[in-house]
Write a protein that binds this DNA or RNA. Structure first.
Lengths: 187, 187
DNA sequence: TCGCCCATGTAACCGGTTACATGATTCA
DNA sequence: TGAATCATGTAACCGGTTACATGGGCGA
C-alpha cells in the first residue's frame, strides 16, 4: 500500500512523470524513507491505472509512458495521510545487534559499537549533504509553508544524531566497566 | 537471516527452549526490535536443525520439542554480531507521512502531526513500562556487564523521545506560519 | 557503429503475514 | 464436559529483491 502512496506523492509533486522518472525520483528524494526499484514500480503503475488512480497522459519516444494523478488518486493520497495510522513494525538490524551485544566479550562489543558508530557518522554526512543541496536548489514550497520532504529529512537527521549519541554512551559505559573490573589501563 | 540470529540469541539467553517458548520470548523481549510469529519460527527451527545450528535436545509432553544451540550455532551468532554490517533499509511509514505532509493544508497537517505525537507518546509509555519491569526483575548480567536487551531498550527510548521532540517542533513551526500568514488567531 | 543511457517489462525467489488445521492437557 | 491454553505445523498470499530480457535513441 505504501508504495502506492509514495508514487502518488511523487506524482503530485512532479505534476506528471514516467515510470523511469519516478524510479529516479525514488533514488533521489524518498530514498531514506522508502525504497523501490523499477521492477516494483512498473507493475504497480499498471495496477494503479487499472484502479483509476493514475492515467497515461501521453506516450513519448521509445515507449515512454507519461503518467499523471487522477482526482481519485488525489483522494486516496489525502485519505491515507489523514486517516492511516502508521503501525509499521519496527524491524531494525542495528537494534537487533544492540539487543544481542551483551552476549559478546566487552572488547568485542566495543568493536561492534565502534563500527556501528562509523556507520552512523557516514549516514549523518549523507543526510547533511542532502540538506545542503536542497537548500541550494530552491524547491517550490507546498501549502504548509514547508518544502516537500523537509520534515522527513529533519526527522532523519535527528534520529541519526540520537543513535550516534547512544553509541558514544554505550561505548563509554562498557569501556568504563571493563577497565574497572580488570584494573587494566585502556589502550 | 536475522530471524535465525534472533532465535540463536534467545536460545543462548534461555539455555534451551521449545518453539512455543521462543514464540512467547519474541513477544516479550525482542518485540520492539524484531517480530516473528510461530508460523515463521517453527519452519525456521527445522531448517536450523538441518543446518546443525540447533539440536532437539529432548521431546516433552504433547509433542513439545526442546531445542538448544550447538557450537556451530554459537559460532554463527558470534560471526554475525562481529562481522555483519547492518544495512537493513529504513522503511518507515511515519517518515513517509512526514515526507508527504507538506502536500496537505496546514490545518490538516497539524492534525496528522498531533496524531503521530500521541502515537509516539503511547509507545514511549510502553517502553518505559518495559524498562521498569526489567529493573524490578533482576535478569542475570551477561559478559559485558550490561543486561541482555538493555542497550536496545535504551536506544529505542531515545529514538521515541527524539521523534516526539520532532513532532512538537514541527507542530510549532507549521502553527506559527499559519497564524502569521492568515493573521488569524489560533483556536 | 559502438557503447551508454533511456525505458519498460517479466520471472524466480525470499521473508513475512494471515488464515487454516489439528490435537493434547489442564482446570473449572 | 467444555473452554482455555499449550503446542505444532501447513498453505495462500503479498511485498520486495535480484536477475533476466529486450529494444530505442543519442552522442562520440
Amino acid at each position: 500500500m505504501s508504495l502506492r502512496i509514495a508514487l502518488l506523492g511523487l506524482l503530485t509533486a512532479y505534476g506528471s512523470a514516467s515510470g523511469y522518472d519516478l524510479t529516479k525520483g525514488f533514488e533521489r528524494s524518498v530514498a531514506h524513507v522508502w525504497q523501490a526499484g523499477h521492477s516494483q514500480i512498473y507493475p504497480e503503475l499498471a495496477k494503479m491505472t487499472a484502479d483509476g488512480l493514475v492515467t497515461v497522459e501521453a506516450e513519448g519516444a521509445r515507449g515512454r509512458k507519461i503518467y499523471s494523478i487522477t482526482p481519485e488518486g488525489r483522494a486516496e493520497l489525502r485519505a491515507w495521510l489523514i486517516g492511516h495510522d502508521p503501525t509499521g513494525p519496527t524491524r531494525s538490524e542495528v537494534a537487533l545487534q544492540a539487543f544481542l551485544l551483551p552476549l559478546l566479550e566487552p572488547r568485542e562489543a566495543l568493536d561492534v559499537l565502534e563500527r556501528l558508530k562509523s556507520h552512523m557518522e557516514h549516514k549523518l554526512a549523507e543526510l547533511e549533504a542532502l540538506r545542503a543541496s536542497k537548500q541550494a536548489a530552491s524547491t517550490p514550497e507546498r501549502t504548509s509553508g514547508v518544502r516537500f520532504g523537509d520534515l522527513a529529512l529533519d526527522l532523519g537527521l535527528r534520529q541519526v544524531r540520537t543513535s550516534l549519541q547512544w553509541a558514544d554512551d554505550a561505548i563509554a559505559q562498557i569501556g568504563r566497566q571493563t577497565s574497572t573490573e580488570e584494573g587494566a589501563a585502556p589502550s
